[in-house]
Amino acid sequence: MAPKASTAVSSRTKNAQNTRASSDAGGAHRSSGGAPEFTLSAEREAELLREAESLGDNASLFPGKLARRVIWSSRIQLAAERDAADLVRTPFPDDEPPLTREEIRGLREKIELLRVVQSRWQAAQQRQERAAAAFEKPAAEAAQIKQSLLRFFDLRFKKSPEGQKRLMAIRAGSGDADLVQDASDLLLLCSEHAEAVQKAPRDEAAAADRLRELSPVLARMLADKTLSLETVRSRKLRDAAYTLVVNAERRLRAAAEYWYAGTDKMKDYAPFPVSRGAHGGGEEEGADGESEEAEPEDGESEESESGDDEPGDEGQSP
């Protein structure tokens, strides 16, 4: 009986190992269906960045969903490499250059550029968000001190129209930049009325001293949390790199339409299904009359890529 039990255990172990091996192989196959690993050389990156910058104001806003976008574009590029023998013979109009194998392979480089510049944009954005979070606590303290000192000067300037006018100007602001300026204006008032501030019974002198400490800190932190030139440039390059990808895809799609219209091959060149509510205009990739209803393959879903959305990107302006 013992040998039979041993044989049964051995059989179950072997089956389990085979199952795991099969599962691992399946996982490897699925990952190979995504974006192939690729490294962009520094020289080629610089060349593509110049091409991206040359777009100027003609760049389209990147709508997000980077991971899905990279996979989708990579599939189009692989399909174009497969069909290159046909596509390079497409009779484009005289005002367009002929499609070449180099251009087809170049889409892979543009996809990688999009990944690279998106990472840089996110890093710059995260630095800005950390600075904004750090600004909140000292700003709240400065706002409290501001109200305390304003009460003191309200009483002091009760019969002074000029003084009341200065206080109204301080109260008029409401944003972070206004708070920094208000601190400077209040400190000037405190200096002009230093003796009265020192004699005030509600610790106005200590409040003024603390505001004097906070003022330069707030000014520096405000600069850190404001959309910097580096951040603006990173975002513009990200949008331009995205535009290079979209423009390259449209060329490949036009060539494929000439050769394969009405066939199953056209599914490999379908435009990326951008949500109409996406940042930057959901109709961008369907602007040529192409359907936005194409469904993601391999079980992908919009929800699975929610991490590619960029909180804080919307509503900011250079």
Results as ranks from 00 to 15, higher is better:
Arg151Gly: 14
Val180Lys: 00
Asp268Thr: 00
Lys159Phe: 11
Arg127Ala: 10
Val180Ile: 04
Glu295Met: 09
Ser301Trp: 04
Ser32Cys: 07
Ala2Cys: 07
Lys165Arg: 09
Leu55Trp: 13
Asp185Val: 01
Leu149Ala: 04
Asp298Thr: 09
Gly262Ala: 06
Ser160Gly: 08
Leu179Tyr: 05
Pro271Asp: 06
Lys4Asp: 07
Lys199Gly: 09
Pro97Tyr: 10
Arg156Asn: 14
Gly281Tyr: 02
Arg101Glu: 12
Glu129Lys: 00
Thr243Arg: 05
Ala169Asn: 12
Ala172Tyr: 09
Leu252Pro: 00
Lys236Tyr: 08
Ala169Cys: 10
Asp309Ala: 15
Leu114Ser: 04
Thr19Asn: 15
Tyr258Val: 03
Asp209Cys: 09
Met168Tyr: 12
Ala46Met: 06
Phe135Glu: 03
Gly281Glu: 02
Gln118Ala: 07
Ala206Leu: 03
Thr226Ile: 01
Arg44Glu: 02
Lys236Ile: 06
Pro201Tyr: 08
Asp154Pro: 11
Glu53Thr: 07
Ala42Cys: 11
Ser60His: 15
Met168Ser: 13
Lys110His: 07
Ser23Cys: 10
Leu113Arg: 09
Leu78Arg: 14
Ser228Gln: 01
Gln181Pro: 06
Gly281Thr: 04
Val246Arg: 09
Ala25Trp: 11
Ala208Asp: 01
Glu230Trp: 03
Lys159Cys: 09
Ala207His: 02
Glu129Gly: 02
Pro273Arg: 01
Ala206Asn: 05
Gly315Cys: 01
Leu155Lys: 13
Val217His: 06
Arg82Trp: 04
Glu257Trp: 09
His279Thr: 12
Thr90Gly: 10
Ile145Asn: 00
Lys14Phe: 06
Ala8Asp: 15
Gln144Thr: 07
Ser174Ala: 11
Thr19Lys: 15
Ser23Phe: 10
Met221Lys: 05
Asp224Ile: 01
Asn247Ser: 10
Leu189Asn: 09
Glu136Pro: 01
Ile104Gly: 06
Ala248Gln: 07
Lys65Cys: 13
Phe157Asn: 04
Asp154His: 03
Val232Lys: 13
Thr13Ile: 07
Glu53Gln: 12
Leu244Trp: 11
Asp83Gly: 11
Glu284Met: 14
Leu49Thr: 12
Lys267Ile: 04
Arg115Ile: 02
Ala196Cys: 11
Glu314Arg: 14
Lys65Ile: 06
Arg253Asn: 14
Met221Trp: 03
Glu284Ala: 15
Ser191Glu: 14
Glu195Asp: 13
Gly106Trp: 06
Arg75Asp: 02
Ala183Pro: 00
Arg212Tyr: 12
Arg50Pro: 11
Glu300Trp: 03
Ser148Arg: 15
Pro318Asp: 07
Leu237Ala: 02
Ile76Ala: 08
Leu227Lys: 07
Ala124Asn: 07
Lys159Ser: 15
Leu227Phe: 12
Glu300Gln: 12
Gly286His: 06
Glu47Thr: 12
Asp182Trp: 05
Gln128Arg: 03
Arg82Phe: 14
Val245Asn: 11
Glu51Lys: 03
Gln144Cys: 09
Trp259Glu: 05
Asp182Gly: 14
Pro161Phe: 00
Glu302Lys: 11
Thr90Ser: 13
Ala85Glu: 14
Pro97Asp: 08
Pro97Phe: 05
Arg101Trp: 09
Glu297His: 04
Thr7Ser: 15
Ala67Lys: 10
Val180Gly: 01
Leu188Thr: 05
Lys4Val: 03
Arg120Ala: 08
Val197Asp: 01
Leu66Ile: 04
Ala241Pro: 14
Glu204Gln: 01
Gly56Tyr: 08
Val9Ser: 13
Ala248Arg: 01
Glu102Met: 09
